[in-house]
Write a protein that binds this DNA or RNA. Structure first.
Lengths: 208, 208
DNA sequence: GAATTCATGTAAATGGTTACATGATTAG
DNA sequence: CTAATCATGTAACCATTTACATGAATTC
């Protein structure tokens, strides 16, 4: 009768019992809501949004199909393995809308870089500089990637990317979000770099 | 002879065999490098940087002590349970410096809010607005929190927070990082909100 | 009186990655 | 000739959370 989701219970009129939907489920359903797809292609679509290993997705899809959230259709191919195309059912759409309306948990961000910055005072100055320099390189490559994707989006979809009722709008907003956040972190990195190299009274670690 | 860390191997001269240090280990060591502490207090110190449950930390500390990375001292207390204070050994310091100098993995950010924005085109306009409004509220509270912490840091440590050889500098930089990123996301939210409410040609979903 | 704090730990369950198995096609 | 792509899946392992156990002192 309901779907439990991390303690909170999402209620439905439809008959489905004790299906446990984890956070990943909703990302997978979010991809399939845009366009019916195979498990393999769902993982590719999630590459930048929510990286996941294919081995985790297959059992999830099977469970959601059994629960009536997804419908599967087997496509026979030659030269390639057959594939299963999954589509959201009406219940699947209900589940998604209920999830979006539910309380959003605070994000938990585990960034190795941030953990290293936390402890970089212990390292020699050269290692600190390298840590920041590598991040700057990575940020620049990410910015270039998402700038290109944003361009493609506008070329491919035009004004549809400005309509909140279409998924292109969401992609548009999330690309922009990445870009503004990455650019801001880049500025922060430059500032840290400046503070690291600012002349100070010499001490034990500043030998080079 | 070495420590394996997610495939890559960090080499040492010291004799320690096959100790598996996961990413969490380095966050824990990072806290203990600043000041010797109990497991309980380490978890509190990591609350905002890298949230972790205490039950995961106790076995980790025991392993690292057995490996010679940490040294433990039992403190007898009355009225309260006894506690163990852990301190980094020389090897522990070596391990940390080697980790900071090693390749940094790209961050994996799993943010429920971002996943919801990805699929909000499926939801009614009111739910979309609420999603963004709640994020704005949360961001404002985070900004207030870190502004206060940054103030405290400067009052408590003064110019030490500008010296890259001291841990206060790292805390200073990471507070600033949070603030600039949160403020930028706030601006992004305001922009999304504007785009969501911008008048458009009416269609099936725009009934209220 | 109930919940929270202090403080350590174990056991069970869930989330996520790595390794294995299969097999044709294509790109380097 | 090796690796990657397409495509699905299972089994084993590691990472993380939740639940349980203990118990005094303090706060609501």
């Amino acid at each position: 009768m309901n779907i439990t989701h991390h303690g909170q219970v999402i209620e439905f009129g439809a008959p489905l019992d004790g299906v446990r939907l984890n956070k990943l489920s909703f990302s997978v359903l979010g991809v399939l809501a845009r366009q019916p797809n195979s498990g393999y292609d769902v993982v590719k679509a999630l590459e930048r949004l929510r990286p996941v290993k294919i081995s985790q997705v297959y059992p999830l899809l099977a469970e959601m199909e059994a629960a009536g959230i997804l419908r599967a259709e087997e496509i026979v191919q030659d030269g390639k393995p057959n594939k299963k195309i999954y589509t959201l059912t009406d219940l699947g759409h209900q589940v998604m809308r209920a999830w979006i309306a539910s309380e959003t948990e605070v994000p938990v961000i585990r960034d190795d870089f941030v953990s290293k910055v936390f402890s970089m005072w212990m390292s020699p100055a050269a290692d600190r500089a390298a840590l920041i320099a590598d991040r700057i390189t990575w940020l620049n490559s990410e910015i270039a990637f998402f700038e290109a994707r944003l361009q493609e989006l506008h070329v491919e979809f035009g004004t549809a990317a400005e309509d909140p009722d279409q998924w292109m709008f969401c992609r548009n907003m999330l690309y922009r979000r990445r870009l503004v956040l990455y650019r801001e972190e880049l500025l922060w990195c430059e500032r840290v770099r400046a503070e690291l190299t600012r002349p100070r009274r010499p001490n034990r670690r500043d030998s080079g």
